[in-house]
Amino acid sequence: MTPDLALEVSGVRAGYDSYDVLMGVSLKVGINERVGLFGPNGHGKTTLLNAISGVIKPRVGNVRFMGDEIAGKSPQAVVDRGLIHVPQANLLFPQMEVMETLELAAFCKRAKPEKSANLDKVLQLFPRLKERRRQQCKTLSGGERQMLSIGVGLMCAPKMLMLDEPTLGLSPKLKDELAVAIGEISQTGIPLLLVEQDISFVLSLADRMYLVDHGEITREVSKGQDVDHEQIMQMYFGEEHA
């Protein structure tokens, strides 16, 4: 039986050292869905992705991916299942060449047979990487690095992708290019969880969006539903300033 949910997070509390950042977060991503996660900095979006991908272990709560419980599993085990986390501002491997990095990224057993097919896909999606293939990662521009980072995610043969602020620090033109590429990726049937600060970017890509505030999900917005800009301002600047 195929589950209808790709990812189901329920009641997750997690954090670093002795304090919690996430105060019980629940969300769902459908099998063919693109979901946005929007909220101010430092309110737990990245922490949530870390807790899902196994970088940190949730203290409480469940994370189910394609029907299997993955909370507390190692990042390797999560990657093996096909849930790929593309981290924020990833520096990747400074002294490795672009092509090497992409080939390396098909590291898990599941991804190896699809290596050359995925490589073609990535190079077709981001032709710029082909031009740069003999360059070391540290010599790439911010936009190229972001493309490589997503490309690396695709090389892992993802069954779902979680992208953490792919547009961070990019020019509007590059953002548009990236939006097209990400759109194309999800056309191939890969569900997305997209963390973003750029609200229009999220709205252009996502079917549905969660608002995160102080480590909790405060609202869910579906496509077509009006987004209240006032409310978003409130989230950023607090009630008293609104």
């Binding site: 991908s53 970088v55 190692s74 990042p75 390797q76 990657v79 093996d80 790929i84 986390h85 593309v86 981290p87 990833n90 520096l91 990747l92 491997f93 400074p94 002294q95 490795m96 090497e100 990095t101 080939e103 390396l104 990224a105 590291f107 898990c108 991804a111 690396v152 995610g153 090389m155 892992c156």
Partner: peptide
Amino acid sequence: LRWTSTGRGIRAVGQNPDAAKLIGIN
């Protein structure tokens, strides 16, 4: 180190262990 998957994995872990974990390298 240059051509094999394990060798590249070793270099990756040395250069950026966090990013290496997220592509499934133990």
